[in-house]
């Protein structure tokens, strides 16, 4: 049924990261559904965004079913709560067998456990630390 990989993407959490990512992917001609439990959050989406929005709590199964999670190629969890992201990512991976699942985790200490469960995680704290280090150590012959 699926024509292309990574065609249908569900983004949970329409904060700065979620909204930005949704707009970028929408520009790359992907089908996007964004879920957030605060309707005002959708105002962050840029004019280029051409996907759908669902106002719901994504930790409730009904919301994920409404977003047709069983047909999703990618699920991205970017709410501001680590544990919510972890829970959504696991539901997507273990129950609905979504191919690619990425979760944002602010707290690096939990990262390892969830990577073992085949969930990709992105930790902004670590990414920033690495970027800072690279800038600071640049030109010192290390890096």
């Amino acid at each position: 049924m699926k024509k292309n990989k990574d065609e249908y993407i569900i983004i949970v959490g329409c904060g700065r990261l979620g909204a930005n990512l949704a707009s970028l992917l929408s520009k790359a001609r992907k089908s996007i559904v964004v879920i957030d439990n605060d309707r005002d959050a959708f105002n962050r989406l840029s004019d280029e965004f051409s996907g759908f929005t669902i106002e719901a709590d994504a930790t409730e199964e009904a919301a994920l079913l409404e977003a047709k999670i069983e047909r999703a190629d990618v699920v991205v969890a970017t709410t501001n709560d680590d544990n919510t992201n972890i829970m959504i990512a696991q539901i997507a991976k273990s129950i609905y067998n979504v191919d690619k699942v990425v979760a944002r985790l602010f707290e690096p200490s939990r990262q390892k456990v969830y990577e073992e469960l085949d969930i990709e995680t992105i930790c902004p704290t670590e990414l920033s630390a690495i970027a800072f280090r690279n800038i600071i150590l640049e030109g010192q012959g290390e890096g």
Binding site: T59, D81, D82, N83, T84, I86, M87, Q90, R110
Partner: peptide, 8 residues
Amino acid sequence: PKDPDNLV
């Protein structure tokens, strides 16, 4: 009180 927290 939060389900995701209890899961984790």
